[in-house]
Each structure stands twice: as C-alpha cells, then as structure tokens.
Design a binder for these strands. Structure first.
Length: 507
RNA sequence: CGGGAUGUAGCGCAGUCCGGUUUAGCGCGUUCGGUUCGGGACCGAAAGGUCGCUGGUUCGAAUCCAGUCAUCCCGACCA
C-alpha cells in the first residue's frame, strides 16, 4: 500500500489550478475578499511583499532620474473626455462620484444629497489629470525631459475579478514623462520596459519576454504599447507590466506645448508606464507549489525563521539564549543590501506545525533548534526550494557566514526552475493543425493544463488575430523585441510573414 | 453585463426538495485542563449562530415567494 503524499494545499495545481491559486493566497494569509465587490484586503504578509516591490522599484526609478509626486484620485469628467480613444477604452469600467453629502433620511438611515455640477471619475489611470498639470509645468525645452512617477491606488470596475490578478481597486505605480522629441520619448519607453524586465527577472525571479503589443491589445490612446509577458505554471501568459509610447496624442488633448530650441512652439512627446499589485499574482503563480507559496529571497518579507524546540523550562532558556546569539550575530549580516530579516517563532505549537505554517507562507529558510542542535551549536536548516524533509545541519559559523550565499542559491534556483518551465512549453509551430491541437485541451468540460507559448508566423492582419482569438481564445501576447527577420507563412491564412510572434492563452 | 452554482459558528459542510420534537447540527479550528512535542499529536471540558440582506405568504419560515448584495465557474469585457 503506497502512502499518498499529503500536500499542504488542496486541491493541487494539477487537480484545479484556479482553486489552488486561491488556496495558496489563503494559506499564506496574503489577502482576502472584502465586503466591497471586487476589492481585496491586503494582509500584512501580502502587503510586506508589495512594500518590498515598492522599495526596490522606487530605487530603480530614482536611478533613472525620476521623481515621485502625487495627483488627485478624482478626475473631472471633462478632462477625461479629451482623448477619444482613451475615453472609449475606459468608459465601461469607471466609478463615478456624483454626490458630496449624506443626509438623514428620517428612517434611521442616510440618503445621498448634494449633487455635483460636474461628476468626478475615480482615476482608472492618470494620464488626463497629470497631463493637465504638465501643460502648466512645461513651457520650454529647458523644462524637459519631465520625469515623474506616482504611487497610487486606482479603480477599474472590472466585471470579473480575482485576487491580485484583477481587482476593482488596485495599487500601482504610474510613470508619466514628457520629452522634446519622438526619439527621446521612445528611448524612455524602452528604458522603463527594461527596468521592469530586470526587476521581474532579478528580484521576482521569473523570466519575461519583452515585446510590443499588437494594435488590438494597445493601451487606449497610445501609439505603441510595450509589455513584459511571463508564463504562469498553467502555461498561460500574464501581462506583468506595460510601457506606453503616447506620441503626441495626450500632449494634444492636454495641451502640453513648449518652445523648442528653434523658438517654435510645438507639442511634446509623452510616455506612461506601470506595474501593479498584479505582480504579486505573477509571483504566486510562477513559483508556488502544492505546499503553498514560494518566495524569492529578494522579495520575501522575511528571509528566515528560527523555530526553537524544547520541552523543559531549562531547555527553553538554553535554546532561547542561543537563538538570541544567532539573532544578534545576524544583525550585521547583509543580504541584497539590507540586514537579514529574521522571524523567531516560539509559539506554543508543535515544531512540525510551526514548520508547515512557514512553508505555506513561502519563507526561504527555516532553522530548527532543539536540544540536540544546541549541544553542537548548530541548526537544522530547511529550504523552501527543496523538499520539506530535505534538511541539513549548519554550525554557528555557517549560519552567520553562509546565509547570504544560501539565499542567493535559492533565488537562482527559483529563477531557473521558472525558466526551465517556460522553455519546456515554448515551441515553434508552423503547421496550422498542430497549432490548433497545441491549444485545445483533451477534456473540454474541465480543461487540463495545456498549451504554452507558440512562436508562430503572423501576417500582421487583424482578421487573423481575431480569428485565432475566436477559435481558440489564444491571443498574440507580443511581438518580441528580439524577433529575428525570417520569411514564413501566417499560421492562420498562409500569407507571407516576416517574423514570428508569441501566441498564448492569457489572464 | 448574459448563463450556471453557492451563501447556515473563524474555516469546511449537513439540514432547504416535502414549512412544525431541531432547543439549528457535524468536522476542523479556538479557549481552558492534562498528557505530548525532532516531522502536520491525543484525551477531557467549554465558548461560539438575528441561517447573506430586505420584504412577502403563513398560526408558524434556515426551509415557500419576490427583490437585493456578495462569491465561484463559463462567456463577453480586460490599460
């Protein structure tokens, strides 16, 4: 009789991926649904991940010359109406403020009153209201480039929401910049895409494909949209960050003009770029396993936990004093530029229960210290990137000396695992039948995990793009930046094509 | 926003079809006491619910009816 392996998360990824995702969030205590439709409460462990994302990205933005500012959450409807494509893209998902007061309704409740003369839109993105400020800030070529970033919450009244991946309110950063020329703005657009790519790969530990969106997938009002696309463990693509070249569209609608070096008044060139709490969703779906969350050390709220194990008061004192010694010594040890973040868990629970608690939360390193370890001044160390039972003994010097190295190794391992998975499920497809087979689940009722990224030729017509979307729910994720010129035939219509693009199902 | 499902204790559920001995239960968790503790413990006791919300039908509603809100799945939408 073979003993079935018990997983901390039920169902497993294979059994029901969507449900597994929700259970991981719950088990790690990252967030929960609130009473407000589509809005989530981000709990401390989840919010700490966001704070790390903010801290690191903010540093990267500063290094590239950007400054933070803050603009209102409300946008006058009239501002919003100025850019036609923008309006069309967002009109159906706006929350609107129409009143300013509550009055006693005489029945123990309240009624809305004080209707506004002009409604306010709760920002779904801030191009229009920031543009209004920029039009006053920019007068001369000497004012450019203007490089601004804002950390904010925004609201998009999405019809179908999922924690972190798509919520009605979410946290993000939005960069907004103004430039003298087409070239300068394009350089900025690509530069920030590179920042996102570096951040995803180096810190969040998942590989991304950088590329350009097709016309149909573009940001409303943009001239071109660039994206980083990541493959989740169910082989679907997740758009994890976007950088938009806005041309002069928003400069014209917001009247951002300046006097150029020749003394002529001209419209400026603008960009915008953003990543959101969706990155946490990407993080979860990239690395987590059937035992719960797996966090790359560079983004984990805590790097390690010490779990003391003792029976008697005497043992407790001896072990806790050793724990303090380690804690003290680790204060001077840095990992990725900051002191090691350490948890001490001496709650009155069995050691295994505490161990599993931290496994589910994704902490990179667990260190158990019991009476046996104390004698040798050592710990029994488990790593989240390895099997729960795969543990090794480290002596005091190793703990102090090699923890950063081990964390680096975990970070690399997690990245490589994600990279391997993407490689395994990324293929070139040139045959239409094979393409359709690749994206069709065997079980239509309860689709199993299938598909992946298909590099295939495309004739660049919207008709073919739409046809494939309709037939298979597969979309062009991007035209990769590194796509090579290569003559081929469109996977859909067979007409000539000059390069491959990436097709995938997506979130 | 269309189709389907669900809403009963912190979590997971039974009870709803066929209204009334059900004083609204069970498992997990929680609290207390004890034995345990190095691989997801055990025994005993206790606490915890206006049955999503509003209204209606009825002598009587978790149960029937209407509305409404929320969640999940499918679709449409998705910077």
């Amino acid at each position: 009789m073979s003993k079935q392996v018990r997983t901390a998360i039920e169902p497993t990824r294979e059994e029901n991926y969507a449900e597994w995702y929700q259970q991981v969030i719950k088990a790690a205590d990252l967030a929960e649904n609130s009473d407000v439709r589509g809005c989530m409460v981000i709990k401390p462990w989840g919010y700490a991940i966001w704070e790390n994302i903010q801290r690191i990205l903010d540093g990267m933005f500063r290094e590239t010359g950007h400054k933070n500012a803050y603009f209102p959450i409300f946008i006058p409807k009239s501002y919003f109406e100025k850019e036609a494509a923008h309006v069309e893209g967002f009109a159906k998902e706006c929350a609107i403020v129409t009143h300013s007061r509550l009055e006693d309704d005489g029945k123990g409740g309240l009624k809305v009153a004080g209707e506004l003369t002009e409604p306010y839109i709760v920002r779904p993105t801030s191009e229009t209201i920031i543009g209004e400020s920029f039009s006053r800030w920019v007068n001369s070529y000497r004012d450019l480039p203007l490089l601004i970033n804002q950390w904010a919450n925004i609201v998009r009244w999405e019809l179908r929401t999922r924690l972190f991946l798509r919520t009605a309110e979410f946290l993000w950063q939005e960069g907004h910049t103004v430039h003298e020329s087409y070239e300068d703005a394009m350089v900025e657009t690509r530069k920030m895409l590179d920042v996102y790519g570096t951040f995803a790969e180096k810190y969040l530990a998942f590989p991304v494909i950088k590329g350009e969106k097709t016309e149909g997938e573009r940001f409303p009002g943009a001239v071109s949209t660039f994206t980083i696309e990541a493959m989740m463990q169910d082989r679907k693509a997740l758009q994890s960050g976007t950088s938009h070249f806005l041309g002069q569209n928003f400069a014209k609608s917001s009247n951002i003009k300046f006097q150029n070096r020749n003394g002529e008044v001209q419209y400026a060139w603008t960009t915008s770029w953003g990543v959101s709490t969706r990155l946490i969703g990407a993080l979860i779906m990239s690395h987590s396993d059937d035992n719960g969350l797996v966090l790359p050390p560079k983004i984990a709220p805590s790097h390690a936990v010490i779990i003391p194990i003792y029976k008697t008061e005497e043992e407790r004192e001896a072990i806790m004093s050793f724990v303090s010694e380690i804690q003290h010594a680790l204060k001077t040890v840095q990992y990725d530029g900051i002191p090691i973040r350490l948890e001490i868990d001496d709650r009155d629970m069995t050691s295994s229960e505490r161990g599993w608690y931290w496994i589910k939360k994704g902490i990179p390193i667990r260190m158990e210290i019991g009476p046996r370890d104390l004698q040798n001044r050592s710990v029994f160390m488990g790593r989240r990137d390895k099997d729960a039972k795969d543990k090794q003994t480290l002596n005091f010097e190793q703990i102090i000396g090699s923890l950063p190295e081990i964390l680096d190794d975990i970070q690399d391992n997690i990245y490589n695992k994600a990279l391997e998975m993407r490689k395994t499920y990324t293929i070139n497809i040139d045959d239409k039948e094979e393409f359709y087979k690749f994206f069709t689940p065997k079980n239509a009722e309860q689709p199993e995990v299938h598909g992946g990224f298909a590099h295939s030729h495309w004739c660049e017509s919207t008709e073919c793009e739409d046809k494939i979307k309709e037939d298979l729910k597969v979309t062009i994720r991007c035209i990769p930046n590194d796509a090579v010129e290569e003559a081929g035939k469109c996977i859909c219509c067979g007409k000539p094509s000059r390069r491959r693009v990436i097709f995938a199902k997506s979130y």
